[in-house]
Structure formats: C-alpha cells, structure tokens
Simulated scan of single mutants.
Amino acid sequence: MRTVDGGMMSGLKAFSARVDDGMLMRAFFHLLLAAALIFVVIDFREIVAQNAAAPFDPADPAVQPILPPALTTGEPENAPGDVTTSPDMLKQAIRFDLQPGGVLIARGAIDPGAAERFKTEIEARGEYVKVVSLDSPGGSVADALAMSKLIRDRQLNTEVAAGALCASSCPIVMAGGVERRAAEDAVIGVHQVFNGSREQLSPERAMSEAQHTTAEVTRHLDAMGIKPSLWQKAMETPPDRLAYLDAKTLREVGLTTEGTKAARAK
C-alpha cells in the first residue's frame, strides 16, 4: 500500500513540476474569457429581445433603428452649441421642405423608408435643389447611406445650419455632399453602430450584421473623401453617447470642405 501511495505521490509531484505558473495563469485567463463571452451573449439576447418588441416609431425615444437617434429630452449634454429645433420635431420621421435658393431642409429622424421618400422628393424637384440642409438626430444607417449616395450622384452640396443637429447616422448623409459646410453653432456628433433590427437575431447574426454595416459605412466614407478617423471616433463612443465634432475636427476628418461660416442660418 505504501508503495502504491508513494508512486501516486511521485506522479503528482512530477505533474505539478510540469505545470508551471505560466500554464496556470493561461488557464485562469481562458476561464475568465469564457465567462465574459457568456455575459456578452446574454447581453445581446436581451438587446435583441427588447428591440423586437415593437414596430419602429420615430416619435418614441425608446425605439432605436440601427443607429439610435441621438436626441432624448432637452438639449444634448456637453454639446458645442445649442440645438434650437424643437425636440418633438426632431423625433418625427424626417420630412423635406424646399426653401428659396434651392435649399432643401431635411429635418427629423431618419426612419426606415426615408431614403425612398428623399429620392421621390429630389426627382420631383428636378434641378432646382442645390443644397441639402440637415437637421436630424439620425436613425437608419441603410437609409442614411442611400441618401448620401443619391446626394453625391446628383452632385448636391450639404450643410448643417446654426442651431441644427446632425448626429448618429446623419453625418453619413452629410458626407455625400460635394461641398460640405457647417455653421459655427451647428451640433454634429457620432457614435457606435447599434443593431436595432426588429428581426429576432442570434448573437452571432447580430454581431455579423453590425460588422457588415461598419464595413459598408467605412467604404462609403472613404469614397466620399472622409478620413478613417471619423468612423474610428464613432466606434470608440458608446451608442448611448455622442462624440461631438468641433470645427477643427470637422475640417481634419474632411466632413467639412469649407470654413464654418459658410453655412446659411436656419
């Protein structure tokens, strides 16, 4: 019996000698990583379940498209200027108002279907529209991309006027302008992609779609002459926060092509 016990002890000692501190640390790290992944999966399932509960209503601040509208209540916190447009107006589905001089004001949340309505508006106005003046808390990325591409195809300019808001996916629309201007008191901000699809998605599918959206937006911004640092700043900012862009940053990333005093007042 002693011989057997002695053999077992010798085997355990030999095994312990082979398991160095580095191996133990690696095993502990992988255990923590596995636990973290479990929590990520749980969080994704909760987000998808919450977002699948109701159809999109741009007037409801709790309902979020792929990039949630930035405006909640009151004025955005720590914004570089004051948003003078009524929050109730900004929460409504985006609408278009043609002003003298070929300025088309696009004001409101970019709801699914906004791009098609924008296309109809542009086609109906013919060559009269020269500038798209944005005042939007953002919304659907797919619609923002389509609007931006149409703006570039039609060789239109974009602007954000004094007191106007252009946040979340709105800067994607702004990027389509051949010339892009922002007034000194305009409020422009970006943040992360957020998958708010109404379809019940698995965590893997939700992550895949978010990555696909990020790649598509990155390619488009590059084609529009926008530097990657703009989207990097967006990806560094949680979806419930905004990274505001001052005049210097707007010029550095290429979102504006002229000085900040060129945009028209609202």
Rank of each mutant, 00 (worst) to 15 (best):
K233S: 12
S133D: 10
G176V: 06
T249N: 02
L150C: 01
G259K: 01
A146W: 00
M147A: 10
P137V: 12
E184F: 13
P65K: 04
E184G: 09
A182M: 08
Q92R: 15
G102W: 10
E127Q: 07
L221N: 06
L250K: 02
Y244A: 03
F29P: 06
C170D: 11
Y244R: 02
L33R: 13
A93W: 06
R18P: 02
A14G: 04
F29Q: 15
A263R: 05
R180N: 11
T72Y: 02
L230Q: 03
V193R: 09
A70Q: 09
A243M: 06
G6R: 12
L90C: 08
E252Q: 10
L165Q: 09
D88C: 08
S168E: 14
V178W: 00
A114V: 04
V132C: 01
G113W: 05
K130M: 02
A186T: 05
A146P: 01
L37R: 14
E77F: 12
K233N: 09
T260K: 09
I151Y: 03
A210S: 15
S140Q: 14
P239K: 13
I151A: 05
D21A: 04
M1C: 15
T158H: 00
V83I: 13
V193Y: 09
A70L: 10
M174P: 03
K227C: 05
A182T: 07
H191F: 09
V141I: 15
P76F: 12
R18M: 07
K266V: 10
R152C: 00
